[in-house]
């Protein structure tokens, strides 16, 4: 199935690009809240695309089920963890970076 292989490669490449971009954003963005956005790309777009790309080359249905379960868990826990972190940070008084502020 050459079509599936090509689609899988495209999805994996796009996922890898999103993941690296999220990592770079985690270092480049100026404050905690903007960094949560950067980490969010790797959680949603990066993880989703990589797992979909793997799903297209599964040898058996058991592997596919496991990939879908991982996808479901990451899709549920990723945003929840981000929300819990941001909520706690805001309650703890971490200031929100505005344009022109120094990095922190």
């Amino acid at each position: 199935m050459i079509v599936l292989d090509i689609a899988s490669v495209v999805l994996l490449a796009a996922g890898a690009l999103f993941v690296v971009s999220g990592g770079v954003g985690l270092l480049r963005f100026p404050d905690f809240y903007t960094r949560v956005h950067a980490a969010g790309i790797t959680d949603s777009a990066g993880a989703g695309l990589i797992l979909l790309g793997l799903l297209l080359r599964t040898p058996s249905w058991e592997t596919g089920v496991r990939l879908l379960v991982i996808m479901l868990f990451l899709a549920l826990t990723g945003p929840t963890a981000s929300y819990v972190l941001a909520f706690a940070a805001r309650r703890d008084g971490v200031p929100i970076w505005r344009e022109g502020d120094p990095r922190r």
Partner: peptide, 27 residues
């Protein structure tokens, strides 16, 4: 939501790689 995630992820990735990221956070 998958489509939305892809579209907005591309927008954020652009900001990550741009030399001077255009960030105007709003709450």
């Amino acid at each position: 939501i998958g489509k939305e995630v892809l579209v907005s992820a591309v927008a954020v990735v652009r900001r990550v790689w741009s030399p001077r990221p255009d960030l105007r956070p709003a709450v």
